[in-house]
Design a protein around this nucleic acid. Structure first.
Lengths: 341, 341
DNA sequence: CCGGTTACTGAAACCGGTTTCAGAGATTGT
DNA sequence: ACAATCTCTGAAACCGGTTTCAGTAACCGG
């Protein structure tokens, strides 16, 4: 039950090295000079006893946890979880910190109220999209708990650093591509979940592109895709049944694009001849679809790295960029109508 | 720098509720009965003060960390990371535990020797595939540190529970499908990385199917795929250039299958008419490829759940199944030659 | 009515580190 | 030579919980 643990404590080391625990502590943390021979003795004894400091004791004494938390929403499927995590983990590791992960699913935890991640078990927090609600964010903010947000902006009025990707410019560009190169004029936009910020900005880019090219915005062409395949698929199927006319779909994200292409195929429409389809994200498989998907590359791993970096800066120096927008680039493949042989 | 932290301690609660800290502790942990009115008072004060126990202090006192670790290898791309993590996190959360994640990349950490995850910061460990080397495993094993392994077996002689998926039977079945239904006889197997255990068992299933159907095993048909797209792609391209004859590819995993299909297409071969292709994993996009990929469904989320469950059992009761084999099922789609319209 | 549980409570030790404070010896400036 | 400074060290307080131990009051069976 209770493991014996390493059981060799700093006092054991101190005794065998004939010094005080204070000195051992100082040697370990390089927090004050220690004479050479003492250093050597301690070094030797530590190695001999295979001493490793008890993390919890240290945390208690220093009031630091040496860990940062990552709060994600419950359903994190999809390609992009891996790379993002990889990015985060790599810089967290470089700084000798631990990474604590949790979904904020209150139903799961014994309903014991509190947040699974917070000041009591982490020194800082990376908040993914809307994995945390505003009252909790306010709460942490007031107690000056370091946080950075990814794929969202902070709630109104709070100065919390955030890392986002360039949504609007890229969306604008890809929709403009549909218009100028492929002469599409009835372009559906499949929006993401209500309130999703990426989706919001993508829609803005979409509308700007329409606007600049003299195409009137038609609210009937903005439909729910929810960033999910089967929903996107159903939406397009419905649209076809209802006789909605369109010649292109900007699918909100690659997942939705996959659903769209499936629905179109099932309905006997050819992509890209009859309908152009473009996505957003450039997921791993997107280049292998037929036709290969034209989309926007999002630097997911980089988002992770930068977020962790910012958080660590914030923890150490109390400062960080207030908003970082990572560049995206559009990737022209076949599903828009280009490169078709 | 040092946050003020919540600063409200158990003693504050005790004072305001006019009881001793011991009683408060007992109330919080339900470790001994407390009279009703006292309970009420404590409850009220805690709520009023927004008291949350200091984790590190508790850890120190109880010699438990209340966290379990997940050790993964550095490159965890691919779909399956998300679901596995989701599975783990869900049961870990149900038990009020934290999940600590780390890649075991020694180069990253300051080279300060020790493992990033271990007895000092976790109560148990889930070890993914070959993310941890044998000497470290032995080391932890000797100090009776609870571990379970996923997607691998423990090193020779150690009784560490492991969770694997049914590789051999499913591989046997899918290869037999190629032979019996589609009359394929020159079937390439693209193996995974050297020493990868899943790959090993899949190869065994492959060979058994050949054997039972009177097809002689040809070592020239077992080629490196490394579970990576571009490597699989190159391998197949090379094979075609070298004039290797084959009429089917069992791609080791879906990722490799995608690479194979790309290479075949580029070479002007039709799938499945000229060459059947099958994979393993049933990744999210596999059903959306053209042709849709025939493959084996692996219960990835379930692996995560079971692993966490086993680890928790092991930590609590000291017992767990020594080996669990999760069932897989083959999913017939088009790339083998079925359902083609 | 009495011995023996049972239910509840508080004081104090303890977990294993860090950090403050004060002091001893060596070194420096004048 | 003497004071001031610098370098190194140890004793003890402290971080915020848990747990042991002892003790009081209420309850129970005979």
């Amino acid at each position: 039950m209770t493991r014996k643990s390493s059981s060799v404590t700093i006092r054991d080391v101190a005794r065998q090295a004939s010094v005080s625990v204070a000195t051992v502590s100082r040697f370990i943390n390089q927090t004050a000079p220690v004479s050479d021979d003492v250093a050597e003795r301690i070094q030797a004894v530590m190695k001999n006893l295979r001493y490793t400091p008890h993390i919890a004791a240290r945390n208690l004494a220093t009031n630091r946890t040496n860990a940062i938390g990552l709060m994600v929403s419950f359903n994190m499927y999809g390609d992009f979880f891996g790379p993002m995590l990889n990015g985060i983990e790599s810089v967290v590791g470089e700084h000798g910190l631990n990474l604590l992960i949790s979904t904020n699913n209150l139903a799961l935890r014994g309903g014991h109220g509190g947040m699974p991640l917070g000041p009591n078990n982490a020194d800082g927090l990376i908040v993914y999209a809307d994995s945390m609600d505003d009252v909790d964010i306010h709460h942490f903010y007031e107690m000056e708990f370091p946080m950075v947000m990814v794929y969202r902006k902070p709630p109104e009025g709070l100065k919390i650093p955030c890392i986002n990707i360039e949504n609007k410019a890229a969306s604008h560009k890809i929709v403009e591509h549909l218009i100028k190169v492929h002469h599409r004029r009835r372009i559906i936009y499949l929006r993401g979940p209500e309130g999703q910020q990426d989706s919001y900005w993508r829609e803005l880019g979409y509308r700007k592109a329409l606007d600049e090219n003299g195409i009137e915005y038609d609210p009937l062409l903005v439909l729910p895709g929810e960033f999910e395949r089967h929903i996107a698929s159903m939406t397009i199927t419905d649209a076809l049944l209802n006789g909605l006319e369109f010649d292109a779909v900007f699918a909100g994200d690659d997942d939705a694009a996959v659903g769209v292409m499936g629905a179109l195929r099932d309905a006997g429409k050819r992509v890209p001849q009859d309908v152009s389809v473009v996505g957003f994200d450039d997921q791993r498989t997107s280049s292998f679809l037929t036709p290969a998907l034209t989309t926007v590359r999002a630097p997911t791993l980089e988002v992770g790295r930068v977020a962790a970096q910012q958080l660590i800066n914030l923890m150490r120096n109390g400062e960080a960029e207030c908003e970082i927008l990572l560049p995206t680039e559009i990737v022209i493949r076949e599903s828009c109508g280009c490169h078709t042989s």
